[in-house]
């Protein structure tokens, strides 16, 4: 038991564990929607596109999260706008928006002399340097999104499963999209400090995809992804503590390992089951 408790004597480890649990839950909820909406790459776009917002907010001396939120939501709307008003496919629109927002961000850091923004920290994060105010911020974001999802579960299910039917029945689909994008951006902002914008994709998409292979209802997917996300984050930190590994990548690799287990051995959709059926058939 001692090896489990030992890391907890340090405050930075306690903070990191708190953050890991919150992010595990938050990313599971938002990530489940991303996966079923087939919009995982949108998280990638938003996570890079927040850079110009950070730079401008830093320059103006306002809260960086506000700048990031505005830039992230703007990028997602630019993708939707290009897609709706041209024959260009969504992946091309995403590629264009991601790179142009990122370029604008790098340019603004140079022009506004905001190069005190630590790009390395932003890209890779450091869960061991999480401060208690980050945990409080993440707690409120998680709480707000969890409450919204519980209240609006049915319309969100309708919208993500059958968007045309949802629109036909009069659901305010544009507002739902706006809310969804805001939630994704807030999740990325919350995760930025701890795992960085590059690895947040893993937390969003990994546990949700693993759960997707194991369950047959959206709410169970969220619960499963939450359990997997929290477990992966904590397991990754123990590995990082005892084997002296960088914590972010350790978490991501645990997530990936769990995905492989489900991918191979999921009772309904595992590769192993398919191979067995194939052999039996022959």
């Amino acid at each position: 038991m001692d090896w489990l408790l030992e890391p907890l004597q340090f405050e930075f480890m306690r903070n990191a564990f708190g953050m890991a649990i919150l992010l595990g839950i938050l990313c599971a909820i938002v990530g489940s929607y991303l996966v079923v909406e087939q919009m995982s790459l949108m998280a990638n776009v938003i996570s890079h596109a927040i850079l110009p917002g950070l730079s401008i907010a830093f320059f103006l001396g306002i809260n960086l999260s506000i700048g990031a939120l505005i830039a992230g939501v703007l990028s997602a709307f630019t993708v939707a706008w290009i897609r709706q008003n041209s024959p260009i496919s969504v992946d091309a629109a995403m590629g264009l928006v991601l790179s142009s927002f990122l370029a604008l961000g790098v340019m603004l850091i140079e022009l506004l002399r905001t190069n005190r923004i630590d790009l390395n920290q932003l890209l890779f994060g450091d869960i061991l340097s999480v401060q208690s105010q980050h945990i409080v911020q993440t707690f409120f974001i998680t709480l707000a999104i969890a409450i919204i999802v519980i209240i609006f579960y049915q319309p969100l299910l309708y919208y993500t499963f059958d968007p045309l039917g949802a629109k036909a029945s009069g659901l305010p689909v544009n507002w739902i999209y706006f809310g969804f994008i805001t939630a994704v951006t807030l999740t990325i902002i919350a995760s930025m400090q701890s795992v960085g914008v590059l690895l947040v994709i893993a937390l969003l998409v990994g546990p949700a995809s693993t759960a997707y292979l194991l369950v047959k209802e959206l709410h169970w997917m969220m619960v499963g992804a939450g359990v997997l996300g929290v477990f992966s984050s904590i397991a990754g930190m123990y590995l990082s503590y005892y084997l002296d590994l960088p914590s972010g990548p350790a978490i991501v690799l645990v997530i990936f390992a769990l995905f492989w287990v489900a991918f191979l051995f999921s009772p309904r959709q595992g590769l192993w089951r398919k191979i067995k059926a194939l052999i039996k058939h022959q």
Binding site: I151, Y158, F161, V215
Partner: peptide
């Protein structure tokens, strides 16, 4: 136009209909 891999059961697809009857925010 439907994603048949979406995590939902037969019963819950039909249950979506009740929203139009009772309002979107009701269980």
């Amino acid at each position: 136009q439907i994603d048949w891999n979406y995590p939902i059961t037969v019963k819950n697809v039909v249950m979506l209909a009740q929203m139009q009857q009772q309002g979107f925010w009701q269980f």
